[in-house]
């Protein structure tokens, strides 16, 4: 790790101001940034310590606004929060299968949504890949069994977050504070495919911070599920994951949000599949055709064709499980 300056700002406003200077990064849990710095993938000159900003550590809930979760809330707090477990269990579920207990004690919800991809070419300092400003995505022609089956160009890394698909299925938004302005955007707007002018997976500017995650009230009878396939029982990023949140009218689906993880550079919402289950009672046939629709357009690379069958199976399993529960 190279030397750096470490500043603890007195408040959010000063934090954002400090971030405006080049070579500055914010640090909260540090579970993503510190390994990058240790491997010299990133060497910021200055770190702005957010951990001391108590105003970003809260978890509120009310019947009108739903959940407001301060960006510094840790994954462990989300996992164990009684209200979350009761009202939006999909989020607690997603948090509980992320990383490891140690990492969940450190990692924050804000940091989780802003984390870099885990692509091993990106993480290896030896490769100057496209995402790091180079010309080539080495994974497209290289070792790509963990990579994207959708939107795999110009970068085929997958978005690694477990919380993001769950939050997107809940229709969540993030509140962003910057030097000049602040505002709230939906996660669909927050996550963007990387492009040459913005080689990252979010719209967040260098001098902006997520300060709050907002989960709206779910209407009436709603249930959700997060399924994650891994190649190790714990501390592994998703091979594929799926988050499904369904609002019910008895046993019929009023509306559903279906989001895949581990398949594209961003959490991948699949409106075509959502459309298929809308106003339906979920049968095996409906679930199967929704799963087919969810993977419409998927194009596997050399080593990741298995993800298509896997993702379909998870979508179907999630829908069938929710339907079973709805009957009870």
């Amino acid at each position: 790790m190279r030397n750096f300056e470490h500043i603890t700002p007195p408040d959010l406003e000063s934090a954002v101001d400090l971030l405006s200077e080049r070579g500055t990064k914010s640090i909260a849990g540090g579970t993503d940034l510190l390994p990058e710095m240790k491997s010299r993938l990133r060497s910021p000159r200055r770190l702005v310590n957010l951990k001391a900003l108590e105003e970003l550590r809260y978890l509120k809930h009310n019947a009108r606004k739903g959940f407001q979760i301060g960006a510094l809330t840790t994954l462990a707090e989300i996992e164990s929060n009684e209200l979350i477990r009761e009202k939006i269990p999909i989020l607690a579920q997603a948090a509980s299968v992320a990383a490891s207990p140690q990492l969940r004690n450190m990692g924050t919800i804000g940091g989780n949504l802003c984390q870099s991809v885990r692509c091993w070419y990106y993480r290896a300092p030896e490769f100057k890949c496209w995402l790091k400003g180079g010309d080539t995505c080495y994974a497209i022609e290289g070792e790509n069994k963990f990579h994207a089956i959708l939107e795999s160009s110009p970068c085929c890394a997958v978005h690694p977050s477990d919380l993001a698909p769950a939050l997107m299925a809940l229709g969540a938004s993030v509140h962003i504070t910057g030097t000049d302005e602040e505002g709230t955007v939906s996660l669909e707007e927050f996550f963007v495919r990387p492009k040459a002018s913005n080689r990252q997976m979010t719209i967040l500017g260098a001098n902006e911070l997520i300060t709050e995650v907002q989960v709206p009230m779910l209407d009436g009878d709603s249930s959700g599920i997060y399924l994650k396939a891994m190649d190790r029982k714990v501390w592994a990023f998703a091979l594929v994951s799926v988050a499904v949140q369904v609002s019910w009218d008895k046993e019929r689906v009023k509306g559903a949000r279906i989001v895949l993880g581990g398949v594209a550079p961003i959490p991948w919402r699949v409106p075509a599949a959502e459309e298929i289950v809308r106003d339906q009672a979920i049968t095996e046939e409906i679930a199967t055709s929704a799963s087919e629709a969810a993977l419409e357009g998927a194009q596997p690379l050399r080593d990741n064709g298995y993800k298509i069958a896997l993702a379909k199976a998870l979508v179907k399993r999630a829908l069938m499980t929710l339907a079973e529960r709805a009957k009870k």
Partner: peptide
Amino acid sequence: LDRHTGLVLNPNLEEYK
């Protein structure tokens, strides 16, 4: 190993599981 460059892609305890 990356077959094109001969470099090890997972020399760490995260991806070497």
